[in-house]
Design a protein around this nucleic acid. Structure first.
Length: 800
RNA sequence: GCCGGUGUGUCGGAAUUGGCAGACGAGACAGACUCAAAAUCUGUUAUCCGCAAGGGUGUGUGGGUUCGAGUCCCACCACCGGCACCA
């Protein structure tokens, strides 16, 4: 059969659509499988082949599950709010709504050309009113639950562009767009109290099946640590400086303190401090740096001693100096630390630079050279002296702190509360009204969605305000509570909002009375398998797990954890080995590949190019290899002779069914395809196969290359679709060859091989090995010390 | 600086998790078909010595454990990704 991929691609995509073959069925008596891929941001650049790889993994699994009889939900949608669209709109004057619609149309056509088995009847678009209505609804619920608050914080601000910038866009202290200097500006920020869910998010990891490194990354992001809060009295005042430490055992060695430059104590004791000008100058320097940069200056510690204030080490009773330095952050712990230079590397660097005393309190290192962070016997530590483990010393110190009332055990998280507002137009309006009498009032549920006003000018407002602030008709409103004049919140939500719950909407996407019905949620949740990029495993996944867990707590969803299993795919790099980007000009457009080689080749190559989880460069020549495989498969139709089993191929078929089945489950698509290629080579060597065998081959290949497989399936006279034909099964007993080849080693070196019946036992194999032509002479005259026998693999003779 | 990952032929990558390194694909070389090219098909292809049989060396580097190491342990080097100096 000569295979014309152009007509076959179109023909089968049309037929699948007519038959609505991939629609998830509303039949809760069937076993379900919910496969989720991260929905794309529909950028103006269109899709690149990396998107295809990201979807083709679960595509294969979803198709296999359908063939295994599952009711499969495999949806797709668009995460379409966001800055690039807004910036493009500002630049071109085209409204973001139009930009978004055009981009979605383009993405949709690209996806359809690849023949993905998405359920197109369930597409969601986060920018549509009947979607973001529910995003706002969930936010309102959080507001009611007290999980929303406002606080002042420092943000990166570009005075020239008049916008607040992310760390990413303000690297080196320069604005990414206009290259002017960034300043740190104090601003009111909306927060979601995600830290309240830190423990729940950690515990939830116990009941899910994530890749180990995904789980580890989430644990590190949440970053729970146990330690102690301790109050260090400020000498000559009634007040204390409160610190957090995980190493309270080293407290006798605390020879100074460091506070963040923004610490409020500076303002409070302004009059007592004699070098306030120097401190202010340092603080101003710090304000120019982003938080990220403050963490970069590692080697050369900077700081200024506060003259006129001293603290008392509550363990040793000694007076110790206080410094300000930017290596201490206001955002973690209490913004103040006790510094123990002998046993902390950063404190050690700082002490060396400023000539501060270093007191060893744990034996075992050489503190003349470097900080010692290991375990050892306590010294110079009063009542702790002689204790030999960290654990005991911490326990003893905690008892002491509690008894004396100067401190207590405490838990801290690395994770910060979630800054939830953006000063942008193209996002979900935050449904809050500011009333001069009632304060912050939520927009009533029945008034949702709070629509994003359609305006011509969506450029940023003055002083980093949202563009919405310029629209009087939007801003001015009446208070839902008291009816008096009030103003709307004009900031919008971050892009993370819409993507935090989209998987819930897929279960019931057209529901206008709830974000999804209870029945749909109960049947489809949790997501059985979620695949996406490593870059999303912390922020996006933790945010969405937080939202989901909140919805569980208020009884809106039936399961605690949204994602039962999470895997991640690796990047596709450009042909030059660099990350694909428009500016490097190394982007491969899936349409070009489909035009030249067909959808099946694109699908197979993205999965065959390497380990699914690793990055690999695009290689046009290897694409051709996949094309050959497709053509060789089509040509198999000419080798069909009769029905039944070809004895010469029987074992290979059973082995292949087994390997392909198991490899798909392990996302080892490259070896699954390699195995099918090997089988085809064997079939060609053999010269013929039966129709039954070809049908097995087609069903195994169908998830990878569905268009070709439908075409062959039809040409064999089958009715119905190969895409939903039964998945082949293997018989374990038939995956075993009649005879086995053993490697024979002498002293671990390969000296020959022997072939024995598969059921030969240890003695028989050893005897055969000793007697074999190659081995016998080499054993002659040697003393046999040991015989190693590995069933089915090898024998090894240890001789002297 | 911290955290995570990777390192295997000319290239992408396999290796049942401690058991014959290099499956499969690409590339290259040779041959068949062709007026010719493409496509297709058939061989060869880690490396060194050897006419051959055969032997030596080989998974970033240096050590170690083991009958046996790409795989485990220690130290180091290089590259990639993430980061919030997390006290």
């Amino acid at each position: 059969m000569k295979y014309d991929f152009k007509s076959a691609d179109r023909k089968w995509q049309d037929r699948w659509e007519q038959a609505q073959l991939f629609r998830a069925r509303e039949d809760s008596s069937l076993p379900k499988f919910y496969a989720l891929v991260e929905f794309p941001y529909p950028s103006g650049a269109g899709m690149h082949v990396g998107h295809i790889k990201a979807y083709s993994g679960l595509e294969v699994i979803a198709r296999k599950r359908r063939m295994q009889g599952f009711n499969v939900l495999f949806p797709i949608g668009f995460d379409a709010f966001g800055l690039p669209t807004e910036n493009y709109a500002i630049k071109t004057g085209i409204h973001p709504r139009k930009v978004t619609d055009d981009n979605i149309a383009r993405f949709t056509s690209q996806l359809k050309r690849v023949g993905f088995s998405f359920d197109w009847s369930r597409v969601v678009d986060t920018t549509e009113e009947d979607y973001y209505k529910w995003t706002q609804w969930i936010f309102r619920k959080m507001f009611d639950a007290g999980l929303v608050f406002r606080a002042k914080t420092l943000v990166n601000y570009c005075p020239s562009c008049k916008v607040v910038l992310s760390n990413e866009d303000s690297q080196g202290g320069k604005c990414d767009i206009c290259h002017s200097d960034i300043v740190q500006k104090s601003k009111d920020v909306w927060y979601l109290r995600i830290t309240e869910y830190a423990d729940k998010l950690l515990e939830g990891l116990e009941e899910v099946d994530y890749l180990p490194n995904v789980r580890l990354q989430q644990e590190n992001w949440i970053g729970r640590s146990e330690g102690a809060f301790v109050n260090f009295p400020i000498h000559g005042t009634e007040e204390s400086l409160r610190i957090y430490t995980t190493r309270c055992d080293t407290m006798f060695g605390a020879t100074f303190m460091v506070i963040a430059p923004e610490h409020p104590i500076l303002e409070k004791y302004r009059s007592r401090i004699t070098n306030i000008a120097a401190l202010d100058a340092y603080k101003e320097e710090c304000a120019k740096k982003t938080e990220f940069e403050r963490t970069q200056l590692v080697k050369d510690k900077t700081g200024v001693r506060i003259e006129g204030l001293e603290a008392v080490n509550p363990a040793s009773g000694r007076l110790i100096p206080i410094y300000i330095s930017d290596y201490v952050m206001m955002g973690y712990g209490t913004g103040a630390i006790m510094a123990v230079p002998a046993h902390d590397e950063r404190d050690y660097d700082f002490a060396c630079k400023f000539g501060i005393e270093i007191i060893e309190v744990i034996k075992g290192g050489d503190i003349g050279k470097e900080a010692y962070t290991g375990d050892g016997e306590m010294i110079n530590s009063g009542f702790l002296d002689g204790i030999s483990t960290k654990k005991e010393a911490i326990a003893a110190m905690l008892r002491y702190l509690t008894e004396k009332g100067i401190g207590e055990k405490g838990v801290q998280y690395k994770m910060k509360d979630w800054a939830f507002n953006r000063q942008r137009y193209w996002g979900e309006p935050i449904p809050i009204v500011h009333c001069p009498r009632c304060g912050m009032v939520g927009v009533p549920y029945e008034e949702l969605p709070l629509r994003l006003p359609v305006v011509e000018n969506f450029a940023p407002g003055e002083g980093g305000e949202s563009p919405l602030a310029k629209i009087d008709s939007f801003v001015n409103c009446s208070c839902p509570k008291c009816g008096g004049a009030a103003k709307r919140e004009t900031d919008t939500m971050p892009q993370w909002a819409g993507s935090s719950w989209y998987f819930l909407r897929y279960t019931d996407p057209h529901n206008d009375r709830a974000f999804a019905s209870e029945e749909a949620l109960r049947y489809w949740l949790p997501v059985d398998w979620y695949n996406g990029g490593m870059e999303h495993v912390t922020r996006h996944m933790i945010y969405s797990r937080f939202w989901h867990r909140f919805l569980y707590d208020i009884g809106e969803v039936p399961v605690k954890e949204p994602y039962a299993k999470r895997t991640a795919q690796g990047l596709i790099l450009g042909p030059d080995g660099e990350k694909m980007s428009k500016s490097k000009g190394n982007v491969v457009d899936p349409n070009d590949v489909v035009d030249e080689y067909g959808a099946d080749v694109l699908r197979i190559y993205t999965l065959f190019m390497g380990d699914y989880a690793s990055a690999a460069p695009w290689n046009e020549n290897s694409v051709k290899g996949c094309k050959r495989f497709i053509d060789r498969t089509a040509a198999l139709t000419e080798l069909v002779r009769g029905r039944g089993v070809t004895p010469q191929l029987e074992t290979s078929f059973h082995k292949t069914i087994k390997k392909v089945s198991l490899d798909i489950e392990a996302m080892k698509f490259n070896t699954a395809i390699a195995c099918l290629m090997s089988l085809i080579n064997e079939i060609y060597d053999c010269g013929s196969l039966t129709r039954d065998e070809l049908e097995i081959f087609i069903r195994l290949l169908s998830p990878f290359a569905p268009h070709l497989c439908e075409e062959i399936w039809e040409s064999l006279g089958n009715r119905g679709f190969a895409s939903v034909a039964a998945w082949p099964e293997w018989e374990e007993s038939k995956t075993v060859d009649a005879s086995v080849e053993y490697a024979v080693q002498i002293l671990g070196k390969l000296r020959g091989t022997i072939t024995v019946p598969a059921d030969a036992d240890r003695d028989a194999v050893l005897a055969a090995a000793k007697a074999s032509e190659r081995i016998a002479p080499q054993l002659e005259g040697k003393q046999l010390i040991k015989e190693i026998f590995v069933p089915g693999k090898l024998v090894n003779f240890v001789v002297k």
